[in-house]
Nucleic acid binder design. Structure first.
Lengths: 355, 355
DNA sequence: CTGAAAGCGCTTACAG
DNA sequence: CTGAAAGCGCTTACAG
């Protein structure tokens, strides 16, 4: 592979001059010389070595994005947004699926550090794990000290996100919508207890209830994972319980999808017997049966602004946090509450009903 | 950020010795010295500079994956598989969404080259664009000459994929399944004309028909895109046409999802009025209403084997192409053909029916 | 077992 | 406008 040395030799100039031409610095070079260098570069199919450049700048135009799982549509969308911004600025993006595993996350950050990535963006929420966070804090402080940008798109142990979506207001709006439909007994699938973003969403649920003057009932809250299996399991938990509910508000769409599937499997009709609401508006939400009422998050835009934030941080510009609004999307999975709430109505119909 | 020089100084040894310890080469170093170096590295929070290492090896442990769009579940799944393998081997993965745009693809490959990525994996199919392919061929030949691995997971202009899924057999199997249900007039949404993988799938359709002794009718084939919008549009095209059909076989799931949505919007019931089949088995396929009959592709495994192939290529091991089998998944969207085929039955019911 | 030195490919003061 | 030279942080023959 041709190096700048060979380009310089072919053009009959010093490497300094060749560098000035191909790196498109604004250093003055005579037109004739410039042309000779360009010609040589073309002939040799010269591609500058980003590693050598990076060694000098102590930074390479690469941004790492840490996600929980790239196959989760939420994260794929955010990553795409980051990529949109990054590509325009000449950066490449490295995706790291942490599986919500502390060890993996740390090991990715270390790798990114070793590579002198210009920035690391945490797309997912942090978890409340003091030991991990202490070590992670050290790593991130070191990265910042080395001039890299660190941006959070979701709440985390070290504080508020830099760019984010208004999770609390979003869930509160959904609760308000359910209340407007007539619901008073609203169950909440809360997501993982240790995830900061899940706490924000739970807070939104509390606020929505409070706004409507409805009391908070701990028994209506199911702590779960953040995927479909967890949603299905949570439905079983609720139905096995004693507390009445007419709607299930979920902390994300995947939970709602799992709930919908399990409800269908049990012969519970949505929204006739119970309403179900999601959160995120991933693309599947519009395609299920019934289609899912949810809250739309500007995920791709979140990724774009995340990169814009990185760009500004790297340029040394002053930074301000951003909180993006969400949008209610009511589809088929929500409706008026049934005459008799679950789980009682189910037990009755099962005992007394046909089949 | 601490360099090996500082670690060496603190440990009171030469950089050569320090390097031998921290790079875990098998070069002999006395136990006492080794311990002193390790201690110094720990104290200084030393993280080796991958750029400096890469400059020496003319390669950095990074693999680029070129996909059409990371938000397409097909590609997210493949990338995840690559990541599984890459992480285990200490590599990072860069994702590049080309949007099926020649210019973007080329620019990504150039960036990857400049970064001395150890490998580039093309997850998506190549397109039949002679000019692009000529230039791309040059780039790829150069990369290989520089010692990088180039792996294709789908057919492309330069030939057969290195690791792939048996697209042709998969579609043929679905056609056979539809025939077994009683269908003879099977429409095919073929995907983009210029995409090599779409050609393989079309070939599968032809083969399936031939196996069943059914003649090929060009009018039943709709050339489209590969996304949902294209699927919806294709349904309109078929319904506006004159040719009878009782089933729609799609070249991928996204097309089938679009078809399902459009059919539902038009009041055509699936599978009562028409059967619909997809291809890929992305996770949404099981959640639609009706759930989608499709062909399961081992996407994540495809990604894993893709990386394994890279690993072997980099180690200079002999390589053999791999073709992975697919699996038929019959769900609710396929059934026996209706008494009267579309589009005639629709016209009739519209003219004569109530409402 | 240890170290001095060269060199990977670039950029950038510095001198002219 | 041009070039000689140093140096980014590492690894690896080579010498001892």
């Amino acid at each position: 592979m041709a190096s700048i040395t060979e380009v310089a030799r072919l053009a009959g100039v010093s490497t300094a001059t060749a560098s000035r031409v191909v790196s498109s610095s604004d250093y003055p070079v005579s037109a004739a010389t410039r042309e000779r260098v360009l010609e040589a570069a073309r002939t040799l199919d010269y591609v500058p070595n980003a590693l050598a450049r990076g060694l000098l700048n102590r930074r390479i135009p690469v941004v790492g994005v840490i996600v929980h799982d790239i196959t989760d549509p939420y994260f794929a969308e955010v990553v795409r947004g980051v990529e949109d911004g990054a590509t325009a600025a000449g950066y490449l993006v490295i995706t790291c699926s942490s599986e919500r595993d502390a060890e993996r996350e740390r090991s990715y950050v270390r790798l990114l550090r070793s590579m002198r990535a210009a920035a690391v963006i945490f797309a997912g929420s942090g978890f409340d794990d003091p030991q991990l966070n202490a070590e992670m804090g050290r790593h991130l402080a070191a990265m910042r000290a080395e001039g890299a940008a660190v941006v959070h798109l979701s709440p985390h142990a070290m504080g508020e996100p830099d760019v984010s979506v208004d999770n609390t207001a979003g869930i509160a709006a959904m609760v308000a919508a359910l209340v407007a439909l007539g619901h008073r007994r609203i169950a909440f699938l809360a997501g993982p207890r240790t995830l900061f973003v899940a706490r924000d969403r739970l807070e939104g649920y509390r606020r929505g209830l409070a706004d409507a003057g409805i009391g908070f009932d701990e028994q209506l809250v199911v702590r779960t994972g953040f995927d479909r299996e967890a949603g299905a399991l949570a439905v079983d938990t609720l139905l096995a319980g004693e507390v009445a509910f007419t709607a299930i508000c979920c902390a994300n769409d995947l939970l709602a999808l799992g709930a919908l599937a399990q409800l269908a499997a049990l012969g519970v009709e949505v929204p006739r017997d119970v309403s179900v609401a999601g959160f995120d508006d991933i693309s599947v939400a519009a395609m299920t049966a019934p289609s899912l009422s949810t809250v739309r998050l500007p995920l791709r835009e979140l990724g774009r602004r995340g990169f814009a934030h990185v760009d500004r941080a790297l340029a040394g510009e002053p930074l301000a946090g951003e909180l993006m609004p969400t949008q209610l999307v009511l589809r088929e999975s929500t409706g008026a509450p049934p005459a008799a709430p679950l789980p009682t109505s189910l037990a009755t119909s099962r005992t007394g009903g046909a089949r």
